[in-house]
Amino acid sequence: MPELDPVDRALVLETQAGLPLAPQPYHALAARLGIAPEEVMHRLQRMLDEGIIRRIGAVPNHYALGYTANGMSVWDVDDIEVDALGARVGALAFVTHCYRRTRHPPEWPYNLFAMLHGRSREQVEEGVGRIAALLGAACRAHEVLYSRRILKKTGLRITA
């Protein structure tokens, strides 16, 4: 696992709520942290390269964009084929997260989880149909678990 040094951590803390909305945001961060702007950019680039930062940009609110239907689709996919197929499912435009996870047979036979966001259940179902077609005979069963209520959402943040 890549290590975060104290300056990286300070940079994460300064940016996890967002970048300054000023013409020179990295310069503003540099001034707050007492380092050079080039070092801010360099460290952010390094964190991007290491996957600590997935990307830099706009994080939309699903609901505000009309994506009110959220379905966690779960699939029982042949263990030999799941990695190749999981990568293809993850590449579909309407899939926002895609993971392989532990099964708990017999109650829970599913090993592939793909999160779908749609403007309606019909749109989510259409996506589920496309995944089913892609998986074909490698998939033995699937279900879609729609979210009904957010019980808690604090997000994953580091603290000083």
Partner: peptide, 15 residues
Amino acid sequence: GVLTRFGPMFQAERM
């Protein structure tokens, strides 16, 4: 509220 944030999106597991 259309955007929840504008900036780096961190992969918390990697930290």
